[in-house]
Write a protein that binds this DNA or RNA. Structure first.
Length: 491
RNA sequence: GGGAGUGUAAUGUAGUGGUAAGCAUCCAAGCUUUGGAAGUUUGUUAUCGAAGGUUCAAAUCCUUCCACUCCUACCA
């Protein structure tokens, strides 16, 4: 079969390297991940192909939270204004992006009290926590919910990355001591590494955010930045030490062993699954389309028959038998549609199916099948009698291979800088800058503002673990440095 | 929040005041095909983003709104 000149292009037409934005838009549309024709800004339809993977991601995350002692619950999606207003910094941070429900019914009757569509659930949950938590026997108290939240975003929305409605998990925990709360933050960070790096193949690094960049109402914020290559980072899950900032206004107290009433120490953790999905498909995908970790693919194996006139039956039978053998263990499809083989190859590569099995008359003569791996395009010829064993091996190795291929060495991405000029150059060269800073407290904010403006990049914070680099002076003001910070461009 | 652009069928487009709109893809039916995007025949689908306005006459000109795309700012 010969490719004709007027062949329509149903695949992706732009290169990811040359025009990332256009590439992503085409990927979302052509792989049928989201439909943006719903016509409400920032609200998109999640199509089955994305929804299946997102549900699998939720399942993995929820299993891990369960294992670490969290219990699931489901909160109402509206929050009374009086509740919402209880913690001053929190209100200040979130009020500009709240959607309000203010009337109801065909006459447009005003509600006695406005209801916020939750932008996050602290102020919904903690009202209930004050009922539920009575004594030290109730602690630690660990809950999570998987839900949608709404934020009235400014101009730029993009499917999965940033919507006015997004899908996440939020975990909200209460402890008797600050130390336990700090340990929870550490556990949250470990969970994040397990999920994002090991399961979803996205390289990340955790930073303690500067005080001016923390979650509204928190004592401190620890956020994972995904390393998207060429020095740019993307904020992914963050975990927050809330101290007693919410416990006091919401009256989240317990009676301790000594009979005294005490306020809890709280933490919250918010992995936004929809954004993680966006980051994953953006990071792993290539010019042919999606690439997915094996466990997360809606379809893991597709079998494509190569039909030659008068030899159809033997090929079809062989494919059917293989399909029957594989379907118990894997998500497998036998694509016997009328399209030509080539068009099927393109289609399933676009969809990111990890393994493609081709069977044609020539293979049957040689007692073999052809297996092609999506993530590296490698073609394997497997003898029929070794098929089962080999498929298991290939499937088991797929995600690990993908992770190794995509893992970035953080140290290779950074450049140590001692003054502004070299830092500026490093940022321009697509590096993450590591430098000395006066501090990450509010008093360093003017310093950060100046530097951020000059470099066109942001102070992401202090690295959470094993900082190796030391600096004597702050890159902004020249005063003695108290810490090393990382500066990077962000998406 | 600031800037630039776009809106005609499911999709991509032609159509710059005068016949309710042409083409291709998709989709459906048939025949011939099939080792990287098949060919062919027939058929279905649009009151031109929405609402006003100008005009004898509007997809086409004007106003407002909505949505989308890109850059910038912010967040998860």
């Amino acid at each position: 079969m010969v490719n004709k000149k007027n062949t329509p292009i149903t695949g992706i037409t732009v290169s990811k390297n040359e025009d990332f934005s256009a590439w992503y838009t085409e990927l979302v549309k052509k792989a049928e991940l989201a439909d943006i024709r719903y016509n409400v800004k920032g609200f998109v339809v999640y199509m089955p192909w994305a929804t299946i993977t997102i549900k699998k991601m939720y399942r993995k995350y929820e299993d891990l939270l369960d294992k670490n002692g969290h219990m699931p619950l489901v909160m109402p999606s509206v929050i009374p204004e009086s509740n919402f207003n209880l913690e001053a910094d929190h209100v200040k941070g979130f009020a500009p992006e709240v959607f309000w429900v203010s009337e109801a019914g065909s006459e447009g009757e005003k509600l006695a009290e406005r209801l916020a569509l939750r932008p996050t659930s602290e102020t919904a949950l903690y009202k209930m926590y004050s009922y539920w938590i009575r004594s030290y026997n109730d602690l630690p108290f660990k809950r999570y919910q998987s839900c949608q939240v709404w934020r009235y975003e400014g101009k730029m929305t993009r499917p999965f990355f940033r919507g006015r409605e997004f899908h996440w998990i939020e975990a909200h925990n209460c402890f008797a001591t600050e130390e336990e709360a700090i340990n929870q933050v550490k556990e949250d960070m470990e969970m994040t590494y397990t999920m994002l790096q090991d399961e979803f193949c996205i390289p990340i690094i955790f930073f303690e955010r500067p005080q001016w960049d923390k979650f509204s109402g928190a004592v401190s914020t620890y956020a994972a930045d995904a390393l998207m290559g060429s020095g740019k980072v993307l904020q992914l899950p963050s975990t927050h030490l809330l101290g007693q900032n919410f416990a006091i206004p919401f009256n989240v107290k317990y009676v301790d062993k000594d009979g005294e009433e005490k306020y809890c120490f709280q933490t919250c953790y918010g992995p936004a699954i929809s954004r993680i999905y966006g980051a994953m498909i953006a990071y792993l995908g290539d010019d042919k389309g999606l690439i997915l970790p094996f466990d997360l693919a809606p379809l893991q194996i597709v079998i494509i028959p190569i039909l030659i006139k008068n030899k159809e039956e033997i090929v079809l039978n062989k494919c059917k038998k293989l399909f029957e053998d594989l379907k118990e263990k894997y998500l497998v499809k036998f694509d016997d549609s009328e399209d030509s083989p080539g068009s099927k190859f393109y289609k399933w590569e676009l969809k990111g199916v990890p393994l493609r099995i081709e069977i044609g008359p020539r293979d049957i003569e040689k007692n073999q099948v052809v297996i092609i791996k999506r993530h590296d395009g490698k073609k394997l010829f497997i003898k029929e009698n070794e098929l089962e064993k080999n498929i298991d091996k290939i499937a088991n190795n797929y995600t690990r291979e993908l992770k190794e291929k995509e893992l970035l060495d953080f140290e290779e991405q950074i450049e140590i800088c001692y003054e502004k000029d070299s830092a500026k150059k490093a940022i321009e060269n697509g590096k993450i800058v590591c430098c000395g800073f006066c501090s990450i407290d509010m008093k360093a904010y003017p310093c950060a503002e100046k530097i951020e403006k000059e470099l066109g990049a942001f102070v992401r914070g202090k690295k959470v673990t094993d900082e190796k680099h030391e600096f004597s002076t702050c890159i902004g003001c020249g005063e003695p440095a108290t810490c090393a910070v990382y500066i990077a461009k962000s998406y």
